[in-house]
Write a protein that binds this DNA or RNA. Structure first.
Lengths: 335, 335
DNA sequence: GTGAAAGCGCTAACAG
DNA sequence: CTGTTAGCGCTTTCAC
């Protein structure tokens, strides 16, 4: 069974390919094709279940109806949930989604972006970038295809952004810890530390401490490796135990770190830390079923997906000309 | 900056488009093109950073180098982890991934498959199908494009499969519950109940009870709605409390259900069930940080992704002619 | 060893 | 209102 194509339809219906193509693309009225002819064409298409060859169409129009999504790790629930809500928006608009993970590597991100733009010809790109500066996105590639950056800011890059106020939310949650009586709060940050999200969260943490006159002990900020979360968390917890100043609170800069802390605290070795208070940037279901009362910052994940994809489509359709920066609200979750 | 194309290269190098195309596609030796010319072409390509237009190429060859992945819900960690491992395999083989979620709807699955095959022209498809029979996949569409089914069997459909032994693993984990002293075990199944995975898990549960001579009380098998897990779990737990026969174990047929149970058990209303034993099909990190010692079945998620994608590529490349059914090993996790 | 030329199936000027 | 026609950029047969 060979695939039906325009020429076949043309023969069968006695209309030219042009006419059929016009109707197909919803331009029937625009070109003033009679209602009768339009109906005839539409019926035939429905009956014969015809669908145009996408390659030919893309070759001709230069549009692929594909959107690329590039994130650190699609297996991370934060990103996969964003992916899902993007997918839903795109589906309704007849676009498709192509997803790739960078594993927090600038080199791989570069490869992926170039692949998607130069080879796959995506019509637009949504990116949670790992880049520490604008060296790459400042180049020609940036102008070839509409892009929306999510979650993280690429320093110096004037672009479309959809994100949350990492600084403000951190300030709020750490202030809450302090109001709960914490006098000495550690901060467990995920690497790479240069990410705007991490930077801002650390700044919020610092500011909250300073505001309350708590001496900002730089030694309490710990770097947790992206690839070695569990080990690093345990090592840092040990350091906290042996350090002179007793710590009574920890601010985990993402969900993986908080989970690793909870896991470690179950070991006898960390008994001393049993009553420590824990706050976390990101909120996950797990926090609802553990005894520890985690204080968390909930990001509007669905909205990030929706906003970024509708914004991108607007840019593609030319509805949105200037660069847009949307900052969405977070929610403090106290248990 | 217009995109570089074959004709430009041809002019610059003084070679015909034919020759360049041949070298590009690794057929230089096959066509007996001199080493010198080949080197020249390759150097130019690298230097000018040329990459062929994918639409034109696909139009000409009929291949898209896209693989479609269709799952119930890409936000479910089980599927997103599979997606990631598939993505890695495909990346190494210069294929790309297109992901869609069906939301457990047969209609949407049909739509997605047809869209991917007829409109997007994917070269292959990996599917965790929601279909309860072979009515759809038995049709013409099935022969158009290579497909590999994962996780679930489509009844009556002779196809490529990569999955685990749901029956055996359930039998094992329920037997373990019994050996731990459970005398009356409930089973919380996720809908739709007709899914092969669910069916097989229930069968394994039944068989384990029967083998140990435990009377199989059909009333202990509860259906939990895919869309209303939390509510349904609470309702069913209440039923268990008020039922005459005291229940001392629950077998949750997926991770979401187990988490919902853990969540409910934290409420005072369910105090009576505090010492109930819980087993779960699927293993998640959360189980490591809750007090309850969950017994679980761990599926080889990465392997499912790897096996399905390599199998699919083999089918596409013609290396694998007969239908293949791979059953991977699960692991009983006792805490 | 290399090149000319014929399409792949579609869209959109342009012409009537 | 409808049809003719010229490509989009690539691959591949065939000819030299």
């Amino acid at each position: 069974m060979k695939k039906l194509q325009l020429a076949d339809l043309s023969k069968k219906l006695g209309f030219s390919k042009t006419l059929i193509s016009m109707v197909l693309n919803g331009k029937g009225n625009h070109y003033g094709i009679s209602k009768k002819s339009q109906a005839k064409v539409r019926d035939a298409i429905a009956e014969l279940n015809y669908s145009p060859n996408k390659f030919a169409k893309s070759l001709r129009t230069g549009k692929s109806f594909f959107i690329g999504l590039i994130v650190t790790d699609i297996a991370n629930p934060f990103y996969s949930t964003i992916a899902k809500s993007i997918e839903n928006v795109l589906f309704d608009n007849d676009y498709n989604l192509m997803v790739c993970s960078t594993e927090e590597s600038e080199a791989r991100e570069k490869l992926l972006v170039e692949m998607m733009v130069n080879q796959q010809g995506v019509d637009g790109l949504i990116i949670a970038s790992t880049f520490k500066d604008a060296s790459f996105y400042g180049q020609a590639i940036f102008t070839k295809v509409p892009m929306v950056f999510i979650d993280r800011v690429v320093p110096q890059l004037n672009a479309n952004y959809v994100m949350v106020d990492n600084y403000g939310a951190s300030y709020e949650v750490v202030s809450h810890l302090i109001s709960q009586g914490c006098k000495s709060i550690a901060c467990f940050a995920i690497t790479p530390l240069y990410l705007s999200t991490i930077n801002d969260r650390i700044e919020g943490y610092r500011k909250a401490l300073a505001k309350k006159g708590i001496k900002n002990n730089a030694g309490l900020i710990k770097a947790i490796g992206f690839e070695s979360i569990k080990d690093d968390v345990e090592r840092c917890l040990k350091e906290l135990i042996t350090c002179e100043m007793p710590v009574d609170g920890i601010f985990a800069l993402n969900n993986h770190i908080a989970v690793a802390i909870l896991s470690a605290l179950r070991k006898r070795a960390f008994g001393k830390l049993a009553h420590i208070k824990i706050a976390c940037f990101d909120d996950v279901d797990t926090f609802d079923i553990v005894d520890k009362k985690i204080i968390s910052v909930r990001q509007p994940i669905e909205e990030i997906g929706q906003n970024s994809s509708t914004l991108l489509l607007d840019v593609i359709l030319g509805k949105q000309k200037e660069k847009s920066k949307r900052v969405l609200d977070t929610k403090l979750v106290v248990r």
